[in-house]
Design a protein around this nucleic acid. Structure first.
Lengths: 139, 139
DNA sequence: ATGCGTGATGATATAACATAACAACTATGA
DNA sequence: TCATAGTTGTTATGTTATATCATCACGCAT
């Protein structure tokens, strides 16, 4: 590989992880794995598995979240975190707001699960229209 | 086409919609669009767009729901409905429980959305382990 | 009856998303 | 040196979803 001189956004990250996290942070928008791939080709990353590997590692570290309803990924607003989040997503411009869930919130959500399924992981995504897109919607 | 004699589970449904809804109801499990496709080939449905069209129509009628976290579809437990639901899903056996959301639940969820995004649609999926799979997990 | 519009469906092709499987390289330390 | 673990590279393929255009069946106005 080349470019061994790049600085990482976090010393614990590997080169690929650093490149991809930086890419996501700069984007400030959710990106698909393949959109990321396009952007990091210049950094020497050129195959889907490389991107997915780094994304999975970053998700495990809590530094990246996946938006299920979009098949897309966003950098965590909080750097690394082990907390739970919901996401609000503008259906028009894809703006994403990360919503930290309080313990009460989480308890409430988990409490919705029926007895026969013990809850482990919550996916909560709220789609809507952001304030900037509201005028445009008057079609 | 053949099989014009089939009975529909609902008179308002087209032939394809009826076949696919029946398939999903019999499955009692979430199915991917392509799994559905395999099962309805004998009914003369043989291309992905046909399946996706019928699924989209059925979702609009509230008779089918999509599980975002699985890329899969389930028949609504309640026939047609315009209500909102959460889903609890066993990560091991894929059993799904539909959780009707009370008005309070919905208000609470929508209330999580930040000011800058006015909420319209909530996706809430809770993954966990169902009671039948709990023993098997002691690996 | 003819011809038209509409809605449903059929069919082809391709886009977009994701992973399995294996090879190669690097660094560390016995 | 050799083994090992961790990371990355590479090929190939699997899976999910949609764009696009063709066709068919039906109702209906002329």
């Amino acid at each position: 590989m080349n470019a061994a001189h790049h600085h990482h956004p976090d010393p614990k990250l590997s080169y690929n992880q650093g490149e991809i996290l930086t890419c996501l942070r700069q984007a400030k928008e959710p990106m698909s794995a393949y959109a990321i791939l396009d952007r990091v080709r210049t950094a020497g990353i050129s195959h889907p598995p490389t991107v997915y590997r780094a994304l999975n590692d970053l998700m495990q570290k809590g530094m990246v979240h996946r938006l299920q309803s979009r098949s897309a990924f966003v950098a965590c607003d909080h750097g690394a975190c082990d907390g739970k989040f919901a996401f609000a997503i503008c259906r028009r411009c894809d703006k994403v707001v990360e919503i930290p869930l309080s313990d009460d919130d989480q308890a409430g959500l988990l409490g919705l699960a029926p007895d026969e399924i013990s809850p482990e992981k919550v996916t909560l995504e709220i789609a809507g229209l952001c304030i900037a897109c509201r005028p445009a919607e008057t079609a």
